[in-house]
Design a protein around this nucleic acid. Structure first.
Length: 367
DNA sequence: CATGCGTGGAT
DNA sequence: TATCCAAGCAT
């Protein structure tokens, strides 16, 4: 359908009212959230917790975020505390959550808020978006939820919900301007944060990507796609490109005396930037790295222990894992020995943890 | 504006 | 097993 930008579609305001009513009854209880009832009593969420949760939730599920959120807020209860934390501790605490540029930006953002804003987050989406790691979505979400700004909050859930409500045939991402116009028309001046969370809850629990639960949807009477029983066809998306298959190798050297593993730090920019790894070959989305023992960082009795398969966003990696027990080496290279008691606290991405686990397991069990 | 950037769960 | 994809951002 055509959207008249800047003008309300007839169904937008009624849909918003239905959604808020539904949220009052069915809002999910989440650690960073203030319930609708508490909100009515005057409670407001802590901007620090809202910000932290929104950054963690970028392209990441609620289930995956919860334990990380608890650990971060227990360890760093305020933005000032996080700002003062050493960078490597923040990266290590983020290890396993993915998209590691988020962790670097998170720390940079905390420092900026502490140093340049007196420890207080800007209260508008526009001001928030000037901070590292905060873009259109996150800035709007924090401003609406934590500060009550009436601003359109558009994430993947909202795109799906609105695409169905209006049976938008233009494929994403081209349809984004039209979707944004609808969301802006829907967003109420009162409780814009609850409205945003209501849209996201609806998308996460009812208006799901597959098999949406239209039977219990509060906005079903206003949904164009459902009226045609074509909800599964929306949102229309452009086809994706196939992921290339890439190869590489990891070399897990274990010190004979204490079982320590030799690790190094990856460059700040690019894949797994700033994270720890056992030495690996030059694999990337663009090309393969060497896979054989001749590519090892130093001579040793390297034994092939298997292959770890790992899917990245843009390519699938098959990483050959080599293992060697060494008496002593590497001290002249950049890196460090990580003893068994410390390996769990290193900033190791999941891929690298799996490679180390494969290299060091015995008879199918962890060493 | 297209591309690069993780991971785990659901189907 | 293969595929999709989840509260996006930076460049």
């Amino acid at each position: 359908m055509q959207v008249k930008f800047g003008r309300e579609t007839a169904s937008d305001a009624p849909a918003a009212a239905l959604l808020l009513g539904w949220y009052d009854r069915h809002a999910r209880a989440l650690p960073w959230r203030v319930s609708p009832a508490a909100f009515r009593r005057g409670a407001r969420p802590d901007p620090y917790r809202v910000w932290l949760s929104e950054v963690m939730l970028q392209q990441t599920t609620v289930a995956a975020v919860k334990s990380y959120f608890e650990r971060f807020t227990s360890r760093w209860p305020s933005v000032e505390a996080l700002a003062q934390a050493p960078a490597d501790e923040v990266m290590a605490a983020w290890a396993g959550l993915g998209y590691y540029a988020r962790a670097r930006n998170l720390h940079a953002c905390a420092k900026a808020v502490a140093a340049e804003h007196g420890g207080r987050f800007p209260r508008t989406a526009e001001g928030l978006k000037r901070l590292p790691g905060i873009g259109d979505y996150t800035g709007a979400a924090i401003a609406a939820i934590a500060f009550g700004e009436r601003v359109a909050v558009v994430d993947g859930n909202v795109e799906r919900v609105v695409s169905r409500l209006h049976a938008i045939e233009i494929p994403l991402p081209k349809s984004r301007p039209a979707i944004r116009a609808h969301v802006d028309a829907m967003t109420p001046a009162s409780r814009p944060g609850d409205f945003a969370q209501a849209m996201m809850d609806l998308g996460a629990t009812i208006c799901t990507p597959r098999r949406p639960a239209c039977a219990i949807c509060p906005v079903r009477p206003l949904c164009t796609a459902q009226a045609k029983n074509e909800q599964d066809r929306f949102p229309v998306k452009l086809p994706k490109r196939a992921k290339p298959a890439r190869r590489g190798a990891a070399f897990v050297a274990v010190r004979r005396s204490d079982g320590a593993v030799w690790l190094r730090r990856r460059p700040e920019a690019g894949m797994l930037g700033g994270m720890a790894e056992p030495p690996t070959t030059g694999w990337s989305a663009k090309g393969d790295g060497a896979t054989g023992a001749e590519a090892a960082p130093f001579p040793a009795a390297w034994a092939h222990r298997g292959v770890v398969s790992h899917g990245f966003t843009h390519f699938d990696l098959a990483l050959d894992v080599w293992h060697a027990v060494v008496d002593e080496t590497g001290e002249t290279m950049d890196g460090w020995w990580s003893p068994p008691g410390r390996i769990g606290t290193e900033a190791l991405p999941t891929l690298m943890r799996r490679a180390i686990a494969l290299a060091t397991e015995r008879d199918g069990k962890p060493a």
